[in-house]
Design a protein around this nucleic acid. Structure first.
Lengths: 187, 187
DNA sequence: ACGTAGCTTATACAAGTGTCTAAATTTAAA
DNA sequence: TTTAAATTTAGACACTTGTATAAGCTACGT
């Protein structure tokens, strides 16, 4: 990402970021990521290519920024309650809520983008990386003789696997049932 | 893939496929996948671009073919012994052996290609897809109230997770120790 | 309200991509 | 060894990509 997200953006920068963000999501609801070109993104957003490249390295970078915005709510705060042993469930629920809230968008995107294609993979990987980082720093849930990092990776993957199952493979499942799957798979 | 792998290739086709295969692996030992162009592949292989596109859709397609060749040994045969409950371990071991045999190649590739970049992701996903298919058809290992497909996916992910840990994140681990991890994580 | 720092924009460039054609060559099988 | 079918190849085409430059515009803090 060329643009520095850590500093507060100017009004203009915010307009530009929002425009590209919305164009990308809108295009993804219409066609596959592979068939979207930077040229097209710029034509739709009504910005010149030079502006696009002021902010992003390429279209992969933009789509990552989209994930960043969509998933912002995961980390709103560190966990406020004492680091309980169901920390895992708390983060699972946050992700569940995000997926649920964006279900319609997700359905549209899935019409044009293969489940195991570049786009969806990049989305899942983005979320997985966040969870790994969180769990790597604090994860009550452990097993004897298994390295912590491995354990954290395994938890992240399992959380994401169940969310994929429900929201990408579209097997409607209540939160309660999902919790049962989580417990069963992680024991 | 433009070329039909199911039919037996002519002598020329085999030469061509092998040449591109070897060029790709050789280039990956020298530089990152992102910086390899179809032009370069052709220059090194000494084939015109038209020939490349006779066989492959693009460089992603070629790299997938490379995984196909490298992983051919996984499915050499269906499991000969009665479908035991450690079917999972059998396939784990096959993968372990493949990784171990290609350790040097892998190390070179990892020097130029990020662990979570496009290339390695595509490799892991290729293997994961194979395992999912195998496990989906026959998996003795189950848990009550967890859908079979979800269970199969979870097993594939866990198998691959441990192999990533050992061979990509480079934490040398004996097969026996690896089996313990597998048992601990899958219970 | 002003000036400067930071953005935006027009334009150009070298390189890569994927497709197509028609001619040259190779191949499998008789 | 010959031949018909299949492949390879050179070259061209329209398009995308990422970078760079210099001129113009905006808006923030004073």
């Amino acid at each position: 990402m060329k643009y520095d997200l850590s500093k507060k953006p100017t009004r203009g920068a915010e307009r530009t970021l929002t425009a590209f963000f919305e164009t990308m999501l809108s295009l993804l609801s219409q066609k596959s990521f592979d068939n979207i070109s930077v040229n097209e993104i710029c034509k739709v957003s009504n910005f010149p290519r030079a502006t696009f490249y002021n902010y992003f390295d390429d279209k992969y970078d933009l789509v990552d920024y989209c994930w960043h915005v969509l998933a912002a709510e995961i980390e709103v705060d560190q966990i406020q309650s004492a680091p309980s042993d169901n920390e895992l469930l708390i983060y699972f629920d946050r992700l569940y809520d995000i997926f649920e809230k964006r279900q319609d968008l997700l359905k549209d995107i899935l019409k044009n983008n293969d489940f195991s294609g570049t786009l969806i993979t990049s989305f899942i990987n983005y979320l997985k990386a966040i969870m790994q980082k969180i769990f790597y720093e604090s994860l009550a849930y452990t097993k004897p003789d298994v390295p912590t990092e491995l354990m954290a990776d395994h938890c992240s993957e399992t959380v994401l696997l169940i969310l994929e199952w429900i929201f990408l493979k579209q097997k409607p499942t209540t939160k309660a049932q999902a919790h049962k799957y989580l417990n069963a798979l992680l024991n």
